[in-house]
């Protein structure tokens, strides 16, 4: 009797395990398939692409002509330079302003503190795409269409999640630290820049990753406000080049897509842990 129970339990466990790995394999397969086919296609010469099935493996894995062609035609050298500049400026700008605002909101009680928190919260409810209908007019009035600095300033703007991550972090730094520094004659500016800011490192890494990914991938506003694609192309908008006459030459398009994905892939492999924990932190309050 007991052996019977033992065996049914064992069989059940094996079935559950097999099902578990089957579903995982299926999930992984579906996640990878669309991208994997892109990689395959990017290594096929135009003739090979035209003659073979999309799922056939390429004849040679060292055929890089598509990548060269895509790099040149989409002006990706310039795109990477612009994107790098935008990333550096926007990250520095938004981390500084975000952490400063969080410091003030967390450490000081003053008239309007709650109001400002609520303003940022309400702003996060307004869908960005809808706002662009009239932000466009503001950017136009400011003369910031086709202006890299203008786009950078726009990207530094409202970002509730990073403000929340900083506020959460400040809440966990004891206030006695500030107070003792003040007693020693430090100003509030000094407290922030000399004492608290260096302690923020983990939060800064989190915000850098979250904001970095969204800035690197941003294409809607870049397309709208950086219209001169010969000068102000970014990595994301460089792909628009492939929508026109090259619309069906997928061997080039896939090569271009792979090039834009590479930086994200490298960052992902290097900082997997920070990305996961950053996302989780960002979601708790956001």
């Amino acid at each position: 009797m007991t052996t019977e129970i033992y065996w049914t339990k064992k069989v059940r466990r094996i079935v559950v395990t097999v099902l578990k790995y089957l579903t995982l394999l299926l999930g992984g397969f579906i996640a990878v398939l669309p991208m994997a086919v892109c990689v395959i296609t990017a290594f096929k010469s135009p003739e090979e692409y035209a003659s073979s099935n999309v799922m056939d493996l390429p004849k040679s894995w060292t055929y890089f002509d598509n990548f060269v062609q895509a790099w040149k035609s989409a002006n990706m050298g310039l795109a990477f330079r612009n994107s790098a500049m935008i990333l550096v400026v926007v990250l520095i700008g938004s981390i500084l302003t975000g952490s400063m605002l969080a410091y003030v909101l967390d450490r000081f009680k003053f008239f309007g503190n709650g109001l400002i928190r609520n303003l940022f919260l309400v702003a996060s409810l307004l869908p960005g795409i809808a706002m662009q209908v009239s932000v466009y007019q503001i950017m136009y009035t400011l003369g910031w269409i086709n202006s890299l600095p203008g786009y950078m300033v726009l990207m530094c703007g409202t970002d509730v999640i990073s403000i929340y991550i900083f506020i959460q972090f400040f809440e966990n730094i004891p206030k006695s630290l500030d107070e003792s520094a003040i007693m020693d004659g430090c100003t509030y500016f000094g407290v922030f820049f000399r004492i608290l800011f260096p302690l923020l490192k983990p939060a800064i890494v989190t915000v850098m990753i979250l904001k970095g990914v969204s800035v690197y991938n941003e294409y809607y506003m870049a397309n709208m406000y950086l219209q001169d694609k010969n000068r102000y192309v970014t990595v994301a908008t460089s792909l628009f080049k492939f929508t026109g006459p090259m619309g069906s030459q997928y061997n080039y398009i896939c090569a271009g897509v792979i090039i834009t994905m590479l930086p994200a892939l490298i960052i992902f492999i290097l900082c997997q842990k920070q990305i996961y924990s950053g996302l989780t932190q960002g979601a708790v309050k956001g």
Binding site: L101, L119, A123, L126, S134, I138, T158, F192
Partner: peptide
């Protein structure tokens, strides 16, 4: 002074790129 200067930029950005556009809209 600290409250004022630290809030100036983020709040200005919020107003210029979110609330003015909203009112305009």
């Amino acid at each position: 002074l600290c409250i004022f200067t630290f809030m100036l930029i983020p709040v200005a950005l919020l107003i210029v790129f979110t609330f003015i556009p909203f009112v305009n809209m």
